[in-house]
């Protein structure tokens, strides 16, 4: 009986394992697909930011864990927020990151990408997928995706560009704002920022 349970357990685990795309394959497929879609889309290439944001929301967003990202960016301040505030924070931070990501993609989608082999054991639940952007006359820019295994596949919880962690870069600012004007102050700041970005385009 116990053996049966064990065997079933292994079977279920390996099936569950197999149905998820490996993290490095996932990053490569998503990047390639998005870059191709941008190249084909005249409106996006002409600077239609709204359409690019839509594309990112459809193709890229599902592979990010925004709850983890927000919690990491907040650091010690995360536990000062109640459940309702947390929900708002995640939503606002997501909006900001998607816009930033859209600008970065629009700027660099024509560069050449070099996908590094993944160094991880099959049992790992936390890996770093490395991609490099090749530029003429400069050191290649490394982009590291920190990814964690969740019940619904591999999810990105941080992006490091040239050694700069996006999530960590917000932490001083977020903690400083929470210290001086509380969690609600930070929410207000994020909302104001997102509003001003929405007006600009």
């Amino acid at each position: 009986m116990r053996t049966l349970a064990l065997v079933t357990g292994i079977l279920v685990a390996s099936v569950a394992h197999a149905q998820f795309e490996a993290p490095d394959v996932l990053v490569k497929n998503v990047t390639t697909e998005v870059v191709e879609l941008i190249a084909k889309d005249k409106q996006i290439r002409a600077g239609d930011r709204g359409k690019l944001v839509q594309l990112i929301e459809a193709k890229v967003l599902p592979h990010f864990n925004f709850q983890s990202m927000t919690a990491l960016a907040m650091g010690q301040s995360w536990n000062k927020a109640n459940a309702e505030q947390k929900k708002v924070l995640i939503e606002e931070f997501k909006t900001l990151l998607v816009r930033t990501y859209a600008s970065a993609l629009a700027a660099y989608s024509e560069q050449r990408f070099d996908y590094r082999p993944l160094r991880a054991r099959p049992t790992d639940t936390d890996v770093t997928v490395q991609v490099r952007v090749i530029q003429p006359g400069a050191q290649p820019v490394p982009i590291d995706y920190s990814m964690e295994r969740t019940g619904s596949g591999w999810k990105v919880y941080d992006v490091m560009v040239g050694g700069v962690s996006l999530v960590a870069n917000y932490r001083t600012e977020f903690n400083g704002t929470v210290r001086t004007s509380g969690v609600d102050g930070l929410i207000k700041n994020l909302q104001a920022k997102n509003r001003s970005l929405a007006e600009k385009k």
């Binding site: 900001l96 816009r99 930033t100 600008s103 917000y170 600012e173 704002t177 994020l190």
Partner: peptide
């Protein structure tokens, strides 16, 4: 330009 967009401060 990206910095301008991403940063609160």
């Amino acid at each position: 330009r990206i910095l301008e967009q991403a940063a609160l401060d």
